[in-house]
Design a protein around this nucleic acid. Structure first.
Lengths: 213, 213
DNA sequence: CCTTTGGTTAATAACTTTATTAAATAACTT
DNA sequence: AAGTTATTTAATAAAGTTATTAACCAAAGG
């Protein structure tokens, strides 16, 4: 049943279905849906093109599997730091940095999401259903905290949605700009690691600073 | 020679080449390169598909024409407000809002740029050549102003590149997120106009605020 | 051993896409 | 008006795409 653990071949025990999934993920993340063909996926996975369809029937299907998977992972880790002992500001800083780290660990994801949401907005509805109460849950909790922090004079008045937009913008867009930043600064992939670290703390500082009453 | 001004047909005096260009622009901006076919462009322009190739030879060619055109337009209007009488902060606010307005007037452009730069980074080099000294000119001027403002204690210390990144992130990403924001808030295209206006001033305030010493 | 079954491939149908070509039409020149 | 040039179209070649099918093979169970 495909779950035979030992190496079916030279291929390190991974099932072919999984290999295809990973190949597809890599390609979709790097080049988008339209620019990726099932033939390419098969080549990347090292199998026959028909096998891609055997496991996932359609390209659309395969894509959706990956997409939902990633979006759910992404959304579930959003604003999860919740330590009672910290001030709103300190908690926020931790959440901003955590959010940055998730994206840094999935640097291709922002592109995929933007690409998909703009070329295929219908998918948003399907995703929304898929996530259920998660987003509004996160939003409501954060909103309560923001209101309280404003009331207590810890931060200036700001709409919660604006705050979220600002955090996401600053964190995500940096990774969308990576090719441009790298071209401008002429940094190697290696040096880019340093730039990321600097940006990470700069973003958090910028936001925290901007919230001063 | 195609430049005959009066209406060649019912078609309001526009040349077919121009009509095709505009049709292509609309489609490329809305759906990206790969998702747009020359057949679609022809249909949108109301002509035969071969005509698209007659005028632009290849799809790639047509795309590049539009792309370079847009990027140049975009870059040439970047940080152009330069009024001696204003403080650095006031000038910055004006520049941020002007930048926001350019994007608002070309809401599809961010998507096209991001799409192209990530799927086809080689194009960055070509664009760079195309823009010449413009970017470094803008950068150097802004950099001098930033350093001076820091020295005079008007703003906190910040790297010019970080400031630029922050401005661009906050302004551009909002438009990339438009479908998401619209889905979440449930706003109609009409109501979205109001959201844009609010965001415009919120972004400027956020940045100015974050620069307080 | 032999049949079943899941995994895999080669072959191919049905389309779509880009690009070219030759022919038709319109416009301009003299 | 005749001839030249520019536009426009129908037809089609060439290549690529998704998806299906029939056949092949290897392991597993009786």
């Amino acid at each position: 049943m495909a779950e035979t653990i030992p190496g079916d071949m030279a291929d390190s025990g991974k099932t072919m279905e999984q290999t295809i999934l990973e190949a597809a993920e890599k390609l979709f993340l790097g080049r988008g849906y339209a620019m990726t063909s099932t033939t390419m996926i098969a080549r990347e996975a090292g199998c026959n093109q028909a096998l891609v369809h055997y496991y996932f029937r359609t390209k659309e299907n395969l894509f959706e599997t990956i997409f939902k998977n990633k979006v759910t992972l992404f959304a579930s880790r959003f604003f999860t730091v919740d330590d009672e002992r910290l001030s709103f500001t300190d908690k926020l800083r931790k959440n901003i940095e955590a959010h940055f780290d998730i994206i840094a660990a999935n640097p291709g994801l922002p592109f995929l999401l933007i690409n998909e949401f703009t070329t295929n907005p219908e998918r948003l509805a399907s995703i929304k259903k898929n996530l259920g109460e998660l987003p509004s849950g996160i939003y409501n909790r954060l909103d309560a905290e923001v209101r309280q922090a404003i009331a207590e004079g810890e931060i200036r008045p700001i709409a919660t949605l604006d705050l979220i937009l600002t955090v996401v913008s600053l964190n995500v867009f940096f990774f969308l700009m990576r090719p441009v930043v790298q071209q401008i600064t002429g940094a190697t992939d290696d040096q880019f690691g340093t730039i990321i670290a600097i940006r990470r703390s700069e973003v958090a500082s910028t936001i925290i600073n901007s919230l001063k009453p």
